[in-house]
Design a protein around this nucleic acid. Structure first.
Lengths: 196, 196
DNA sequence: GATTTCTTTTAACAAATGATAAAAAATGAG
DNA sequence: CTCATTTTTTATCATTTGTTAAAAGAAATC
């Protein structure tokens, strides 16, 4: 494989502001509750089997979000520098989620305990609105993924990845890309070979 | 067709509380900004072509949310009594959405102008948290639809509709159900005929 | 650097789904 | 009720995609 292009670590401040700009006092409240953690490739960051208690912001690295049944698994999405990882069902409903999250590279993360965040919701209106905005934007992203998966063929979506996220093809093995596209690895090979 | 079972209208109060219980002053602030509207079957409630300015809560009736391209369209979901209709892209980003919403029956709706709601976010922390909760729960529903559509076959999902939402089959024509399941109407007929 | 392991491609066949068209059934209008 | 329209089912055929297995290619380990 060709030498992987080095990825730039993402500043926490920038990640938080990208979601919704916070006034300084509120931002500092948030920052006080966030710590840095590192995990190696292969680490299971979030598990479908349990109620999770953390939100992670990715400083550096890439993760695969997926669900599984007895016989097979499908990849829901890939998250990388600047993205946020959370089990919504844990975070919102205090229930087990449906997704596992595994790191595909050694990664550096910012961790925020959901309990701490939830306490801030009642106290700080800016943080409540920041989290509102977070959920709203995540919802739009999920809607977009949903529509893309319904509307465009696997071939079209593969070509979109090539065009918009070429680094993904370098950083993620093709069996996961196939699973993300909702097809078998064999079908992806057919697409890549361009024999329709 | 057999006589359609009468559906119960949904109280606004109950719809709002189901999202997230609000303290009375905040709830009254919200209620002040909500009006009742009625539209006939076939009415286009929200359009993908424009930035929309209302959120609707369904008192009575049923709506189809769908997207379309030049050649075909797919049904994203059906919403009925107690459900909420909103173009998230309009509401969150002030941009055109990707979905059209058409009423499948004469319907009674509660309407809330998004501009009014958004003004309340800066003033009332309970309303900010109510809307946070709304987005979070919608996100979980969307994730669930996404996973259902990937994991289970159209046949299984049709049988789930039969089991969990039998009224849908009565109230919605099968071509829309097929489109919701992501298959052609011909395939749905095959499933219904049970010839695998 | 050779060997083992994991990943990707290729091939052959089977099964599922879509496209098209026509028939049947249900619905709505006069 | 009858006719026109819409919706649903059925049939046929072509295409796509999955399954299985084997080969080729890369990467990791010793």
């Amino acid at each position: 494989m060709q030498k992987r292009s080095e990825t730039n670590p993402m500043k926490l401040d920038h990640i938080l502001d990208k979601i919704y700009p916070l006034p300084l006092p509120s931002k500092q409240l948030l920052l006080q509750n966030i710590t840095e953690v590192n995990y190696p490739k292969g680490h299971i960051l979030l598990s479908a089997d349990k109620v999770e208690h953390s939100i992670f912001f990715i400083k550096k690295g890439i993760a695969r979000v997926y669900t599984r049944t007895l016989d097979h698994e499908i990849t829901i999405l890939f998250c990388k520098e600047g993205d946020t990882l959370v089990s919504m069902k844990s975070y919102v409903l205090n229930q087990k989620g449906y997704e596992d999250v595994a790191l595909l590279e050694d990664s550096e993360l910012y961790e925020l305990k959901t309990e701490k965040l939830q306490k801030l919701f009642a106290k700080d209106i800016s943080i409540a609105n920041w989290a509102r905005r977070f959920a709203e934007k995540e919802l739009i992203k999920t809607e977009e993924r949903f529509i893309a998966r319904q509307f465009r063929t696997a071939k079209e979506r593969y070509q979109e990845i090539l065009r918009d996220h070429p680094d993904l093809i370098q950083r993620v093995q093709l069996s996961y890309i196939a699973s993300y596209l909702g097809i078998t690895q064999v079908s992806l090979s057919r697409i890549r070979a361009d024999r329709s």
